[in-house]
């Protein structure tokens, strides 16, 4: 579904990502792990069009997406969240998700004067939003302003907003950071349920317990390079991975 080929990014001579290749399948949870500064978010930015790679290609759904705008990539079904929580702060939860559902849909200007067109669009948006809020267990806070939500709820809301864009492959950047164990478990369940719906997930995450529990395959980045790839059980035994994590946050301990 998504394939990165020899992707390299450097900032002023410093390699953030170096010749990384990998594939993520459309029905899998693929996790990208690695110590801080390993280039995970940069890789995400390349895959979603927020950063141009110096070299390399990214193919999604059988077409190269390098050079497309983030919105164009999102429209193809590759939708991301951000490491730092990003929501539409001034809007209510319901409204934000409603808006999210219409973002990828074409609505030409002339339709604004077409009787009923706006009402229909709004109805569709409202139904879709209700469905998404239900599935993310956010219906109780639907009327609240996004900014009034707890941190944990905001992180879930981000996923709800991403789901509103109708992804075929969902990319989550550290969705569990800052969540307590209960919230993290809830998040894990949400992610697996998304996979169950046939939507692939690529996950950057430091919470190794979560990663080991739900991933189908794991990619390990270190200093911008891919040092290992495989199923959770393979990765846990990989000597290079253990070495890379030594001194930092102990991999075995996590």
């Amino acid at each position: 579904m998504l394939e990165a080929m020899d992707v390299s990014v450097s900032f002023g001579g410093v390699h953030a990502v170096r010749a990384v290749s990998f594939r993520a399948e459309g029905r899998d949870i693929t996790s990208v792990v690695g110590p801080n500064g390993a280039g995970k978010t940069t890789l995400f930015n390349v895959l979603t069009g927020f950063q141009k790679p110096n070299i390399g290609n990214v193919v999604f759904a059988d077409r190269s997406i390098v050079g497309l705008k983030p919105s164009g990539i999102a429209a193809l079904g590759l939708v991301r969240t951000f490491q730092k929580t990003e929501v539409f702060k001034g809007l209510t939860v319901e409204r934000a998700v409603e808006i999210g559902t219409t973002c990828g849909r074409d609505f030409p200007m002339w339709q604004t004067v077409w009787p009923g067109a706006i009402g229909r669009a709004r109805e569709t948006a409202r139904n879709e939003a209700r469905r998404i809020l239900q599935r993310c267990v956010l219906e109780d806070v639907a009327g609240e302003p996004c900014a009034a939500l707890s941190y944990g709820e905001q992180r879930i809301l981000e996923i709800a907003l991403a789901l509103a864009a109708r992804p075929r492959l969902l990319m989550l950047d550290e969705p569990a950071s800052g969540l307590n164990p209960t919230e993290a478990r809830r998040l894990g369940d949400l992610i697996t349920s998304i996979r169950a719906d046939g939507v692939g997930v690529i996950l950057i995450e430091h919470n190794m317990q979560l990663v080991m529990r739900i991933s189908d395959s794991i990619i390990v980045l270190h200093h911008g390079e891919k040092i290992a790839e495989g199923t959770p059980s393979v990765i846990a035994r990989d000597q290079r991975v253990v070495d890379a994590y030594l001194g930092g946050s102990g991999f075995a301990a996590a």
């Binding site: 983030p70 919105s71 999102a74 429209a75 939708v79 951000f82 999210g100 973002c103 907003l161 864009a165």
Partner: peptide, 8 residues
């Protein structure tokens, strides 16, 4: 940024 990521 979020708008772009949402397909706007």
């Amino acid at each position: 940024a979020l708008a772009e990521a949402s397909g706007v």
